[in-house]
């Protein structure tokens, strides 16, 4: 079980990116974290495995307090947390197999890693996982020879090979076209079921979140403003997340913050359209 309590992050610039965020994740739940750009979604994900150091609060994974670990202990803890990145973050000049096997680096000695001599069961597992994500036969391709969707599958396979207790995904679909995005989300959902581990996904596209997640968490200005099922994510909730509506009511504040422009407008439709889509699809498809 992943348990986050009063987590906060203030950057060196004084910017408060994450403020008093608490929630628990367990079982094989697929949790989508949504919110406008700059709401602290990435900071939240990265604070969990401490790629970004949180400034206050705690993260506990099965009882271990990750925030207080020494570097060595942290490395051991990171082995149990799989991570999928926005821009795939594959080492492009290595083969697909090396990228996948790098998920085992925390378990094998540096010397074995250097010689690419991984234990037989790891290699077997890697072949099986590649087959599972639909990349059988691509083992010897270099990562930069693959398409975006294929690369993200390698990224997912790498995370799975860690045999993690939880998978974190930081905007896994933002560099992909809508079709591939859906496939990647499906894959992540299926992994949660098959491995019985929770998957925590940062995502821009509200419809995708509704469609695949069991639970949605909304962040605004670093604060948790929504936590519920996709059904509970109604217009009022969306307004609260995307307009940071305060009790006083800033009625004249029309300019909704637009999602970060990452890979073209068709991938990240303007917010109004996102919300329209969200309304028109009652409870996923």
């Amino acid at each position: 079980m992943l348990s986050i309590s009063t987590l906060g992050k203030t950057y060196g610039t004084g910017e408060r990116a994450l403020d008093d965020v608490s929630f628990d994740v367990e079982g094989s739940q697929v949790v989508a974290v949504i919110g406008p750009s700059g709401a602290g979604k990435s900071t939240l994900i990265r604070c969990i495995n401490r790629l970004t150091e949180p400034t206050d609060g705690e993260v506990r994974l099965d009882g271990t307090n990750l925030t207080s670990l020494s570097n060595r202990e942290l490395r051991a803890a990171r082995r149990e947390i799989g991570m999928v990145f926005q821009e795939y973050a594959l080492v492009e000049r290595l083969t697909v197999m090396e990228n996948v096997l790098s998920g085992r680096l925390g378990y094998v000695s540096t010397w074995r890693g250097f010689r690419r001599k991984f234990p037989q069961e790891d290699v077997q597992q890697a072949y099986a996982t590649l087959d599972r994500v639909g990349l059988r036969g691509h083992e010897d391709d270099r990562a930069d020879e693959l398409s975006g969707g294929q690369r993200q599958r390698v990224g997912i396979a790498r995370a799975v090979l860690q045999r993690p207790k939880i998978v974190l995904a930081d905007e896994p679909t933002s560099s992909l076209d809508p079709e591939t995005s859906r496939a990647v989300m499906e894959l992540l959902t299926e992994i949660a079921r098959e491995e019985s581990i929770p998957v925590l996904i940062n995502i821009h596209e509200v419809p995708l979140a509704r469609e695949h997640a069991d639970r949605i968490i909304g962040l605004t200005d670093g604060k948790l403003v929504f936590d519920g099922t996709p059904d509970e994510l109604d217009d009022r909730a969306l307004d609260r997340i995307y307009r940071s509506e305060e009790p006083g009511g800033n009625a004249d504040r029309q300019g909704t913050p637009e999602p970060e422009p990452t890979a073209g407008d068709d991938v990240n439709p303007p917010l109004e359209r996102v919300k329209a889509d969200a309304r028109s699809s009652p409870e996923g498809r």
Binding site: T95, R116, Q120, Q124, A126, Y127, L130, D131, R132
Partner: peptide, 18 residues
């Protein structure tokens, strides 16, 4: 995670292509 075949059907060796 298992693939489309039982786990033992997969190879146990992999060599980096050269």
């Amino acid at each position: 995670m298992t693939g489309t075949r039982p786990i033992d059907a997969y190879e146990t060796e992999w060599r980096r292509p050269t």
